[in-house]
Nucleic acid binder design. Structure first.
Lengths: 202, 202
DNA sequence: AAATGTATTGAACAGTGTTCAATAAAACAA
DNA sequence: TTGTTTTATTGAACACTGTTCAATACATTT
């Protein structure tokens, strides 16, 4: 079965080619401003063929959504070497914010676009749950180490994510100009440091 | 000049009529899913006439954006009667979150849509700055009352807004389902309470 | 060489924001 | 009352969007 095998590989390659084109345009112009014809032109195919390989624009979105989470999780896993859970928690937040700074459009795709979550309970949703679990486990470890006593770990996890996400969301949707600051990076980093100093007292 | 006066009033009324139709559809279907033809149909006019009264879709957006901030500021001003600044700060956050819960689509317009901020330095941007100033002054008052010693008020303001906004942003973009909770309201309220308990230690 | 299945195209559909000539309506001038 | 100018409104058109689908080209199997 050498031929059907190659066929499958070619099909997979075409899927990847579309995804590569889509990623480029998506991350250049944002989700809404990217058209199927743009993607098709980028890879020098007709627009119609995309629908042979993907159900619709939403499925391409989901794929890149997943990609983004894998990239984020990869960057977070580097911190596994940090032994103290609270130190790892603090560093994870910094890494999270850095991810948003360096991958603004991935971040938009992952956390700020409406689209995807109608057909939830799916794989593209599963990876997000995995990322939350990462944070949740970290919080539990901190509590086992004596931190955050008498706090509900579920709500605490949600709150920590919210605070960090809030910083990134204001940045990604250009809502930082009401603050007097030199650079966005400075505002975000110092804002997060401010949050960390609160955490340290808890 | 009775006639030109009435004319002006009629023009203003037409502007308002368009705005009312736009608000209804915007807050029903969201910004991107609302078309000029939808708005026109809602008020039983042709689509073209909107462009006689508004530059483009973005200007309508800006108007509703401003409306949203006025509504928010009105709800916040109720808390002026709370004397203790820290209590007022905590209540402001609760009011902010409640506003997001009850006006999800206004909130989206105000904090989560790309559109408007290209032509910044304008009135639609000014009102946002006013809201930030409200929070900033509150933070300064807290510091004068002995709270948040040795913290930069600028970054602290940004952080508090971020944390609160993060809660609302996750809610408004339907990113709460990774958490095990009964209702969104419960998750948000308890998440915010969690943040407040941190603030109290600072 | 013929038949089958798979991949690709390009036209078409119904929708979008926006523009603009034509027109209707109202206000002003004679 | 006429005619003229301003102002408001329409509806057609343009270039775009996501998506579907008959026609077609290609590769593989018979």
């Amino acid at each position: 079965m050498g031929i059907t095998e190659r066929k499958q590989k070619e099909k997979q390659e075409m899927r990847q080619r579309i995804l590569d084109g889509a990623r480029k345009i998506f991350l250049q112009n944002g989700y809404e401003q990217t058209s199927m014809r743009n993607i098709a032109a980028e890879i020098s195919y007709s627009a119609g063929v995309i629908y042979f390989h993907f159900k619709d624009k939403g499925e391409i979105f989901q794929e890149l959504h997943k990609e983004g989470f894998n990239l984020l999780l990869k960057q977070l896993r580097v911190l596994d070497s940090v032994i103290d859970p609270f130190e790892r928690l603090k560093a994870s937040g910094r890494a999270f914010i850095q991810f948003a700074q360096e991958n603004k459009d991935y971040y938009n795709l992952m956390f700020l676009v409406e689209e995807p979550l109608k057909n939830s309970e799916e794989s593209g949703f599963q990876i997000a749950k995995e990322a939350i679990k990462y944070l949740h486990d970290l919080v539990l470890e901190c509590q086992q180490a004596g931190r955050f006593k008498d706090m509900d770990p579920e709500y605490l996890t949600f709150m920590i994510l919210s605070a960090t996400h809030g910083i990134c969301a204001l940045f990604c949707k250009d809502r930082t100009m009401s603050f007097e600051h030199k650079t966005n990076k400075e505002l975000m980093d110092n804002g997060y440091a401010c949050f960390v100093s609160l955490l340290e007292k808890g």
